[in-house]
């Protein structure tokens, strides 16, 4: 060839391809290595919240100290919390002495800037919300994202809007000042 390779028209394409392969390769390796850790974080957080929401009811029924139940999280989950089938998202039953003493539903709905996911713990007759916590949201840090803080959770105990609404739990919450976010449950 009369021209060196670096001046042929195909050189830019080859260069791009090589660079892309190299960098994507490095990324893939890095990502695969970290993936397990990221998954573990997510599962840990989820299970932690799961146990925390149900621990009060469990402590009342079994008489075991609440903090101990939370500390021995995996054991608590294996012994008392059973997943339920038939719902479009995750659902759990809290079982003590072969009877369900609480339910927990994983719900997803719209926030202002993105979707939100939360857990709602209810009593066996679906009449009362025992506890509630948001575990995934994309709101403005400092404003809407404060929905995950304790002061908001403590607000949420109480009765559901209507005893007949067992298949649709609608929780209305406030972001910042005025906008309302409906969170619709699984079914």
């Amino acid at each position: 060839m009369s021209k060196p390779f670096s001046e042929t028209p195909v050189y830019p394409v080859v260069f791009m391809l090589v660079i892309t392969v190299v960098f994507v390769g490095v990324l893939a390796v890095f990502y695969r290595n970290s993936m397990a850790q990221i998954e573990a974080h997510k599962v840990n957080e989820y299970n932690q919240l799961l146990v925390e929401l149900l621990s009060d009811t469990l402590a009342d029924s079994t008489g075991i100290d609440r903090t101990m139940l939370i500390e021995q999280r995996d054991e608590t989950i294996n012994t008392y919390i059973k997943p339920l089938d038939g719902y479009s998202r995750k659902a759990y039953q809290l079982i003590y002495q072969d009877k369900p003493i609480a339910y927990l539903f994983d719900i997803k709905g719209k926030g202002l800037w993105g979707s939100m996911a939360a857990m709602v713990a209810t009593d066996p007759q679906f009449n009362k919300i025992i506890d509630f916590a948001v575990y995934a949201q994309m709101e403005t840090p400092g404003l809407g994202s404060r929905i995950t803080e304790a002061f908001f959770k403590d607000n949420s105990e109480g009765n559901l809007p209507s005893p007949k609404a067992t298949s649709r739990t609608t929780v209305w919450c406030q972001r910042g000042r005025k906008s309302l976010l409906p969170i619709r449950s699984a079914k």
Partner: peptide, 8 residues
């Protein structure tokens, strides 16, 4: 305008 229309 915020909150008038939910975009998701």
């Amino acid at each position: 305008f915020s909150g008038i229309v939910a975009v998701q």
